[in-house]
Structure formats: C-alpha cells, structure tokens
Design a protein around this nucleic acid. Structure first.
Length: 311
RNA sequence: GCUCAAUGGCGCAG
C-alpha cells in the first residue's frame, strides 16, 4: 500500500496498479486501504469511470467500503461536478450505517462552492452543524474562496470574522485564499495588509502566496513590482515555479511586451523550470493577439514535440 | 498505510 501510494502521488497511477495486481497475484490481498488509495488516484487523474468500477468491484467482491472510501468517491464525483451522484453516495453510506464526518461535509461544501452553488454550500454547512459536527478551518476556507472567486470580498471578510467568533483561527491557506481574492481585484494594499497579518500570526508565505501576489501586480500591469516579488521570494530561498513564470509571462503578453515574455521563457529554460501547456497557451495567445501567426504555429509545434498535448 | 480547503492561459457559461 505504501508503494502504491508513492507511485500514485507521483502521478504514475499505472505503476500503482502494478503493485495492486502484484498483491493479488502473490496472495497478499488488497484491503480497503489499497482500494481507497487507487480510487483516489484515478479520480485525481480524471479517470472517474475507472475509479467507479473499482468501487463497484470492491463491493461485488464482498469488501466493505469504509467512511474513507465514501469520502474519496464523493470527492471524486464533486470534482466532476456530479453533485447529484455525490448526494446519492451520502444516502448509500446511510444504508451501511456509515455516518458522514467533517471531511464528508467539507467535501460537499467545497463541491457546491466550486459548482457555483453557494446557497447549497451554506445548506450543507448548516446540516453539518445540525448533525453535531463542527465546521473547521477547511470548511471556512472553502466558503471564503467561493466568495473571493465571486469577487464578493466583503462577504469573504464576514466569513473570516464568523470563523473567528466561533473560535477558529485562519491558517496559511485561509490567508492565501483571501490574499488571492484581493489580488485578483488589484487591491494590493489590502493584500499586503493580509500578508502582514498572516506573518504576524506566524505563517510563512508559501509559493502559492507569492504567486497570488505576483498575479495581483500583473493584473495591475505593474510588471516591475511583479518581478520584485520574484526577487523577494528568491531571497527567502523559494524558487519560482511554472505558475510564477506563466503569470508573469501572461502579464507581459497583456502589456504587449512579448520581448520580455520570451526573455522569461528563456529564463525558465536556464533555471530548469519546464513549461507546461498553460505556459505555451499564454505565449501562443500573446502572439495571436498580435497577428504573429507563423510564430504561434512554431510554438504550437514546439509544445507537441515536447510531448505536451494541446487541450 | 488511504479521504476535504489556496496560485497561472484560452474557450464556454454568467
């Protein structure tokens, strides 16, 4: 199970399956944890149907799914936007006398948030309380993120206050969520105020936090500041990743400054940061916006040569 | 040993 998990989190699900099959062959039969691990990996790779048939398979073979099995399946269905089926699974849990826990509810709350149904997310939040479970920092971070994505920063702050009133402390992800919300709107002063609060509370800004700040400056067209954040993170020993670079490249493309955009592409190569399909799309789009179609085609071919599939 | 929340492009939807 440990080997399976190792390969699955590395994205090599096929190798994970190899261990699963080896267990069957050698008479060390996979248990519920093996099934849960593989199902989760399938869902996270977007291979929902294979995950579901594993789930059916385990039931057929008389292996009882546990609470975590259902949480995995519910999360998988939520990621696919299949909220109806996710609710059906909660009913199915009941037949097996399994009670949804905080993770189950957090998963459903987040699913409804991502699906844009904030109202239903609040309904689930209330139901969770009614069932004697306490919404935690994960629950609130989902709700806050939903409001940030909708641009309703006022409501996001209210939720932050509400969680504090209930004795919950925002963590680094909660702060990063809010910082991103303000950055998306270009409200950099607020974003930096939250960053300071985050640090005062003992949390170090993560790579994701820095990327959110970089994006905020790019949204405002303040490319010097965006590059300044990169320098700052490097001083702290954090290396910019493909997201940091793509964000800045996108900013330069919007600024019609393709020279700088391509300079950064080169820098990525020099620093051993691989471009992904999003980075290429950003650059291709930048070229197309300027009617530089032959160069766009060349980049398109370059990405295919590198084994990246266009989406 | 297994499950939940945060960051980048385009399109679609709003």
């Amino acid at each position: 199970n440990i080997m399976m998990r190792g390969y699955c989190v590395a994205g090599e699900v096929e190798k994970g399956i190899g261990f699963f099959e080896e267990m069957e062959r050698k008479g060390c039969l996979p248990n519920v944890v093996s099934y849960n691990t593989l199902m989760d990996a399938y869902f996270k790779k977007g291979r929902a149907e294979e995950a579901m048939s594993l789930f059916e398979g385990m039931k057929y073979r008389g292996m009882e799914p546990n609470l975590i099995s259902y949480n995995v399946v519910i999360n998988g269905l939520c990621r696919e936007g299949r909220m109806e089926e996710a609710s059906e699974m909660v009913k199915e849990m009941g037949w097996r006398r399994l009670k949804p826990d905080e993770v189950t509810y957090n998963t459903l709350v987040n699913g409804h948030c991502k699906g844009g149904n904030f109202h239903q997310a609040l309904v689930l939040h209330a139901e969770m309380v009614k069932n004697g479970l306490s919404p935690n920092v994960v629950t609130y971070t989902s709700l806050i993120n939903s409001m940030c994505k909708a641009g309703n920063l006022h409501r996001a702050r209210e939720l932050l206050d509400q969680m504090r009133v209930r004795g919950l402390r925002p963590n680094d992800r909660t702060y990063t969520t809010l910082i991103d919300g303000f950055c998306q709107k270009g409200l950099m002063n607020e974003a930096y105020r939250l960053l300071r609060e985050m640090m005062d509370n003992g949390y170090k800004p993560s790579l994701v936090t820095y990327n959110a700040l970089i994006n905020g400056h790019c949204v405002m067209g303040r490319m010097e500041e965006a590059l300044g954040v990169v320098r700052e993170m490097e001083e702290k020993g954090l290396a910019p990743d493909v997201v940091s670079y793509s964000t800045i490249i996108s900013g330069f493309c919007k600024d019609q400054n393709l020279d700088e955009a391509f300079r950064l592409k080169q820098e990525m190569g020099a620093r051993d940061v691989s471009l992904d399909a999003v980075t290429y799309s950003t650059l291709i789009n930048g070229l197309c916006q300027q009617n530089r179609l032959p160069e766009a085609c060349n980049l398109f071919q370059e990405m295919i040569r590198l084994g990246l599939s266009p989406d």
